[in-house]
Amino acid sequence: MNIFRILGDISHLISILILIHAVSTTKSAQGISLKTQAAYVVVFVSRYLDLFFRYVSLYNTLMKLFFIVSSIYVVFLLNRYKKNSEKTNDIFPVWYLFGGAFVFALIFNYEFSIVEILWSFSLWLESVAIIPQLVVLQRTGEAQLLTTHYIFALGLYRALYIPNWIYRYYTEGRMDKIAVISGILQTIVYSDFFYIYYKKVVKNLKFKLP
């Protein structure tokens, strides 16, 4: 395991902790897309089916369990704090993302089996799952700082996987084409957000310096 992947996984872990912290302390689901979070439940459950038949390492198993359980917990929290009277900005037709990811999974997979197709589906779905959240962000106009930190940490995780894949290609001769291409797609989806985050958050912090 190389430094890029560890940092990526830590970033992913932190993003979820930030989200849970933000929703439970404010007791509000405002500004968080339930559609994006429900998509992540589908992503993790369909990707980690190999928990039942393949043991990689304790680290791998614990992280997989964490991502499945925490994503379900987030959806539970959002449902608990969701106010029905509130005008929703969560309007993106998420079924397009599911449909598109499924078609891609049927075309690009390492084996035409249920487990392999679901694995590929999870990668494509993850690469675009943040879109409903970005739409909410855009429509709300101003977001809580924690929400933007959450999206940043979540985007950073897959971006850090890219140098990990380059490193593995040179050291191990490994190249997981589906993971790499969907990972690059995911980073492109985040690129606009990264730019705005840099402008708003990083520069504002600098402005506060004496």
Partner: peptide, 10 residues
């Protein structure tokens, strides 16, 4: 490089 699935990645 050979095309393989990285089973150890999350």
């Amino acid at each position: 490089g050979k095309q393989t699935k990285n089973h150890d990645e999350l």
